[in-house]
Nucleic acid binder design. Structure first.
Lengths: 121, 121
DNA sequence: CTAAACCCTGCCCCCAGGGTCAAGGTCAAG
DNA sequence: CTTGACCTTGACCCTGGGGGCAGGGTTTAG
């Protein structure tokens, strides 16, 4: 299959597929005319990458998952490295939520303050 | 004062000051040799921009605050436009926290699922 | 006079692609 | 055989808030 078939099958753009390749996540064959050729397993890989990116992982962080797939597993997240990556991402999200919660409080204080100042004057 | 004096006084880097200028937040005079010259009021502006950026606003979104200062107000956040910007940012943060909370739940589910799959096999 | 310390502009880098382009390949209809 | 539609390729610029570096001009102190 050609790149647009893969992109359509996996629900991403052609541009995204080429980007994944540039990140080392795909290594398609090339036809004589230079066109990239993909196999059915690449659809699974691209879907997985898409899903992981939507969870906020970076392209680099999807590496262990893809390796897990390539190692012959049905699921990308059953390898120890994948579990570690999940836990790291959860910790990251928790940290971010804490930061934003604190930020929210700061903003609310600033807003209240500014409003009070206005009624005072 | 020159750019490094301003940067030191406001607690930012020289690079940041030049970036703020490129975003239209500062319009320094130029000496004959091309050096930028700033007044004491610019220190206030840069401090304000720095504070607002740390609250997660974009450089563009700091515009109303700076205008408020330039209009002669002692505080950048007492103008109606500033209050609106605060509220918009709070809403944005709330949305982001909700997103991340949902994402956190998804990740926790995936992790549990992957762990169970492993003990099962 | 010279060296340090400052200033200038301009370029490349991040991240995950989006947009656009010129060039060339492929396949069907006419 | 040619035209047109559609596909592919690589290459370039863009995002936000600067960091880092290059290569040059300027100023100030010793």
């Amino acid at each position: 299959m050609h790149i647009s078939d893969l992109a359509a099958a996996a629900g991403v753009t052609v541009k995204a597929v080429r980007y994944y390749e540039s990140q080392g996540l795909l290594k398609p064959q090339r036809e004589a005319n230079g066109y990239r050729t993909y196999g059915a397993e690449d659809v699974i890989v691209v879907r997985e990458v898409k899903a992981l990116l939507s969870l906020g992982l970076t392209a680099e962080q999807t590496y262990p998952f893809i390796e897990c797939l390539r190692a012959g597993n049905d699921r990308a997240d059953v390898c120890p490295a994948s579990l570690t990556a999940y836990r790291a991402r959860i910790a990251e999200v928790d940290r971010r939520i804490a930061e934003l919660t604190e930020l929210r409080a700061k903003l609310a204080d600033l807003l209240t303050d500014a409003e009070n100042w206005r009624t005072k004057v």
